[in-house]
Each structure stands twice: as structure tokens, then as C-alpha cells.
């Protein structure tokens, strides 16, 4: 391997400054846990001249709870968030999605920010983040901006981040009473695999009626999708069969998958409906409990 410049800033400003400068000179990669980046470097897919390690930036490692609204640093590892007991009570779907990434060892490094920026259509945490309604805080040379997760990706491996911009944290809405989220994925094995289809559902229930719903799918299109027609079908319903079926059909219709070694188009479409229904059931159960 040729020489690689390794920068380990301690503030966001330093990181943004270094990133915007080095990006102009060559290929720069941001390193959080490195669970995607190191694999890409080893296999020759990525050959960076500069690596900026953001793990030492305090804000990116912070977890805070402001009266029920969580802010999670972009580089917080899955295992760390798992130990934050109350987060899992509020956003069990987001946590279960994050925890599906890789093995026990990977969980010590893998982060929401890394999973988002890797921009794989099959990233497990992305549909769950979309369904939660979280926004991502971005900082760049021109300052700070926020974006809903569903607007973050452009295509496989491509994001809306501009030159020099880094993801700082995720801001979750205050969890509504009687709401619940869930994430399910289909893999041929039971673990250590990549989603063939992933589905996240977040519902809020009032007097047995669905008052809010967000549904997201992963691995069925170039980016993870927010399925607005599924939300429309559910909101105002009692989750009666007709409404659920309509929402499931909306999921299927939104799918724009590819045929590849992990699954066929027809398989992914069928499975999106099934996973939606199962995730919905789980989300409803959680919503009724909390």
C-alpha cells in the first residue's frame, strides 16, 4: 500500500477544515468505526490518500436526551447505544436495526453515521431511521444544515453531502405516547448476512386508530425508501385488513429492485409485502404497550 495520511481531529471545525482541504487534493475518506472502510481498502475498492478519523470528536460520540428527544452522535457504536437502556425503550426498531449490522465484534465499532454514509441500499439502520422521522445534522465549510434521512441518499454509494461536509449526529423526534417502531429484514441465514429486503414501520395509535405511520423499505431500490402511500393507507384506519393490504401493495409498488446474487426482483417484491405486515404487527404491539 502506498502512503496514507491519517488525520485525527478533536473538533468538528478541524475535521471539516481538513476534509474540505484534502478532498481537493485527492481521495479522502472519513473513518468512524471503519467496519466498511477497512474492508473496502483491503479489497481495493477504495484507495484513499487521506483518512480522517472522527472518533475523537466529542460531539460525534455523545448521546443526549432532551426531555424525550434523543440526539445520537454519528460515531456512537452499536454496542454503546445498546447499553443506553432508555433509547431502546423509545426506539426499539432503530436499535434492533443497528444491532443487526455485523457480528458481536463489529457492534463494538459500527455506527449509525457510518451505516448512513456508506450508502448501501441494504444498510439495515437506514429504513429504521427513516421510519423514526429522525433528521441528520451535517456540518460543512458553509456551516450547519439538517436533513430528513430519506433525503440523504442519491444512489448506491452516493449521498447528498457536499464537499467537506460530515455527519455530526442524529436528532430523533420526541416519542409520542402509544407509538412504536420495528425493523425486520430478510436474510437467507439467521445472521452474518446482508438484507435481501428490510422494512421498518413506526406507528402511533390513539383510541385504536392509527394517527401516524411511517413505513420504510431497504434493499429494494437504489436507496432506502419512505413509502408515503403506505402511510396514507394506514393513517386513519383501525389497521383493518383492507388498509393493511393497501399499504402492503404500496410497499410492493414502490419496489424497484434488481435481480442479483442475493435475490430476484419478484422475490424482493413479494417479501416486501410480507415483511411490512410482520413489522407492522410488531410495531402495533409495541405502540399498544407504550
Amino acid at each position: 500500500m502506498s502512503e496514507v495520511k491519517f488525520i485525527s481531529p478533536e473538533t468538528i471545525e478541524q475535521a471539516v477544515d481538513a476534509y474540505s482541504k484534502s478532498s481537493k487534493e485527492g481521495n479522502t475518506k472519513i473513518l468512524a468505526g471503519g467496519t466498511d472502510l477497512l474492508v473496502q481498502i483491503r479489497s481495493g475498492i477504495s484507495q484513499p490518500d487521506t483518512i480522517i478519523d472522527i472518533k475523537n470528536i466529542k460531539e460525534l460520540k455523545e448521546i443526549s436526551n432532551d426531555n424525550g428527544s434523543y440526539t445520537i452522535g454519528a460515531a456512537v457504536a452499536g454496542a454503546v447505544l445498546d447499553e443506553e437502556e432508555d433509547f431502546g425503550n423509545n426506539w426499539p426498531g432503530v436499535l434492533e436495526a443497528l444491532k443487526l449490522i455485523g457480528s458481536e465484534q463489529i457492534q463494538g465499532r459500527a455506527s449509525l453515521g457510518g451505516n448512513l454514509c456508506n450508502a448501501s441500499p441494504a444498510g439495515d439502520s437506514v429504513p429504521a431511521l427513516i421510519a423514526s422521522g429522525a433528521t441528520v445534522k451535517i456540518q460543512g465549510p458553509e456551516g450547519e444544515r439538517k436533513m430528513p434521512i430519506e433525503s440523504f441518499h442519491v444512489g448506491p454509494g452516493k449521498t447528498n453531502l457536499k464537499n467537506g461536509e460530515i455527519v455530526v449526529n442524529f436528532q430523533f423526534p420526541k416519542k409520542q405516547k402509544h407509538s412504536g417502531d420495528a425493523y425486520l429484514r430478510m436474510i437467507p441465514r439467521t445472521e452474518m448476512d446482508i438484507a435481501v429486503v428490510g422494512c421498518a414501520v413506526n406507528v402511533t395509535i390513539e383510541n385504536d386508530k392509527c394517527v401516524d405511520a411511517r413505513v420504510a423499505l431497504g434493499a429494494v431500490a437504489p436507496t432506502a425508501l419512505l413509502i408515503e402511500d403506505a402511510s396514507k393507507a394506514l393513517i386513519g384506519s383501525n389497521f383493518e385488513k383492507k388498509a393493511v393490504e393497501k399499504a402492503a401493495l404500496a410497499c410492493e409498488a414502490a419496489c424497484n429492485p434488481i435481480d442479483d446474487k442475493r435475490g430476484t426482483i419478484s422475490y424482493r417484491k413479494k417479501v416486501s409485502k410480507v415483511l411490512f405486515k410482520r413489522a407492522l404487527e410488531k410495531a402495533i404491539e409495541r405502540a399498544k404497550r407504550g
Binding site: 441465514r189 439467521t190 445472521e191 452474518m192 446482508i194 446474487k261
Partner: peptide, 16 residues
């Protein structure tokens, strides 16, 4: 060969 690794060449894992 399109799946030259243990991610997409799926030997069983313990939990299977």
C-alpha cells in the same frame, strides 16, 4: 464467479 466470499457464498452459521 459472482460470490467469491463467505458473505454471499452462504455456509451455515451456528444460529442456523
Amino acid at each position: 464467479l459472482d460470490n467469491p466470499g463467505f458473505l454471499d457464498y452462504r455456509i451455515p452459521v451456528c444460529s442456523d
